[in-house]
Design a protein around this nucleic acid. Structure first.
Lengths: 347, 347
DNA sequence: TTGAAAGCGCTAACAA
DNA sequence: TTGTTAGCGCTTTCAA
């Protein structure tokens, strides 16, 4: 492994000073003879010289790098967000360091610290909520964007969607479409605003519609935790009640989708199916799946916009952006139609 | 944005030298009084001091960071690889910088250069093949792993799967299952080894089985490019021939899946469906989809293992790893069964 | 057990 | 138009 050439090497070879090379590297050709410029260009090419961004960052106190922590890069939400975020940042010359927390608060904390150690200029993360004090401190010194799980911290930015409204609206629609029962599938919602809000939206709809809520808590990866829910759905339908399964996210519906279909009840007439998230398989299955589509791309772009504006020194007074989701009604609940729920909000 | 505390600040506050603080930071407590250690710990906590990894990296010539470039973070293959790679690296204390090339050679080149500028210690990438000369040069100075599209460069590592064998085997199976025609769907394969090998595997099977190959080239995002393929399938079946659609990757099958099903031919009796890749919707659709499952996780882990070993200074003589894919036969082609194709190979 | 000082590769103020 | 030099925050050698 030969050592990489440095600016010193280039300067020596070209017979000029490092300052001149530095000027060249930063495109300040105006005060430089053509001959010098060509000489430097030659040497750089010959030596395969690449500037050291570490040294540059150390000096300039800027790394042009932003950090992102998501729960799991495999989740559609996370992938979608990361892609949009990374694209928007890349367009402004920023790099992205990505890490996965697996939803573990301790790991999340370590990851944040190590991003800080690497002097990322901003951090976007889907936080567990357990590091909020630390994040609030951090947010005083650098842009911090809480994504998806939008806890409210005075100095941090937050980007989320109108979970409660969208969830309430979806449940309303389902009742409206004639489902007598809605079995709501969720993972343990405690401490996770997103899940809590979606659940509350559902509960509100039940209250208004004067229906008994039916919340089934499942654990991903644990098939037995789904068995109860599936049995419940089966029982309701056998009792002659049109029943809809409404899932708090696409992954848990995915885990029980087959089993639900294998009950054999006709969809959508006896059994309705709806989920938060817009999994890529939503319109491959038959009948196509009703979903709440979150504006993932916009969330990533918006996060990048906030970060970039702040790093440019601009004022970004709206700390919180709540983007509107879209109800995508498909044949799995009977009728086709699609509508944005409410409007985007900044505050 | 207050300036972050430096090792100098800590030293001053604690009334010791920076050397001592540095020793503390690196856990060399053996030559340090307990009092000193406690004092330093206090000050660090009070100041919220975080070491600057840039300065450390500049001095140590090590950044503990690895770069990865994939075509698109949304592709199942890329996500799977990135996750496994990132996990394995994280376990060894490495960070990951991720970027997307969108399959564009120029952009890929820029990304590589900027990863180099950031002094990543190794690079794993799914390359277009257009930067092979540059990559070969680079591979002389740092570990470079070509993933998936495993071009053979003397100094670079390569990790791929046995595309040709798996593809041939899949086609054989399909003929064996009684499909008279296999319509092969692919994107333009020129210059992309993965696609070329898969196509060749299919062509070999046709040759051996004495069947006319039927290759349809499609372009993702361009519905009209799929229309021909779909019409062709329809025509064959109407002519009374059992026909299978075999797709070179999951994304292109996804784009035409609905349209194929809407032809109305019974699956698997008249129409068979099979694809390379193992999309997450493969067993949600009805009937479940026959696939060639690549060992994505192992590829990520293996890439990390190679990189880490090399960075530790160990010798890694096997430059190339070809991992075996698995044929997952499901009801979309009639019979359920699954088999690994061949064995993993190192050389 | 502790510290002084050189130096990693770069930028920019100042000087020529 | 070009160069000298201090310093970014850290590690490490050498000395005390």
């Amino acid at each position: 492994m030969p050592k990489r050439a440095t600016i010193q090497d280039v300067a020596r070879e070209a017979g000029v000073s490092v300052t001149t090379v530095s000027r060249y590297l930063n495109g300040r050709y105006e005060s430089m003879s053509d001959r010098t410029r060509e000489k430097i260009a030659d040497v750089i090419a010959r030596l395969g010289y690449r500037p050291n961004a570490l040294a540059k960052g150390l000096k300039a106190q800027r790394t042009q790098t932003v950090g992102a922590i998501v729960v799991n890069m495999g989740y559609p939400f996370c992938v979608g967000f990361l892609r949009a975020f990374s694209r928007a940042l890349g367009a402004e010359g920023y790099h992205l360091m990505v890490a996965e927390s697996e939803g573990d608060a301790r790991r999340e904390r370590q990851l944040i610290e190590s991003l800080v150690a690497n002097r990322v200029e901003a951090i976007a993360l889907q936080t567990s909520g357990a590091n909020n004090d630390y994040l609030e401190d951090l947010a005083r010194e650098m842009p911090v964007v809480l994504v998806d799980r939008a806890f409210s911290l005075p100095h941090a930015y937050a980007i989320g969607t109108n979970n409660r409204d969208a969830s309430r609206e979806m449940a309303w629609q389902l009742f409206d479409l004639g489902y007598e029962r809605i079995v709501y599938l969720t993972e343990d919602e405690r401490g996770i605003p997103t899940r809590t809000e979606r659940l509350e939206g559902y509960l509100e709809a039940c209250r208004v519609a004067l229906r008994e809520p039916e919340v089934m808590r499942v654990r991903r990866g644990d098939a037995s935790s789904f068995a109860d829910a599936i049995a419940r759905v089966d029982a309701e339908i056998r009792r002659g009640r049109r029943t809809a399964v409404y899932s708090a996210n696409g992954l848990i519906l995915m885990e029980c989708y087959r089993a639900l279909r294998q009950l054999g009840h006709p969809v959508p007439s006896a059994l309705g199916l709806a989920t938060f998230d817009h999994p890529d398989w939503a319109d491959l299955v038959d009948p196509p799946l009703t979903c709440v589509r979150q504006p993932v791309d916009e969330m990533g772009e918006e996060a990048a916009r906030m970060v970039i504006a702040r790093l440019r020194g601009e004022d970004v007074p709206e700390k919180t952006r709540v983007l509107a989701s879209t109800l995508v009604m498909r044949e799995s609940t009977g009728r086709e139609q699609s509508a944005r729920i409410g409007r985007d909000v900044s505050r």
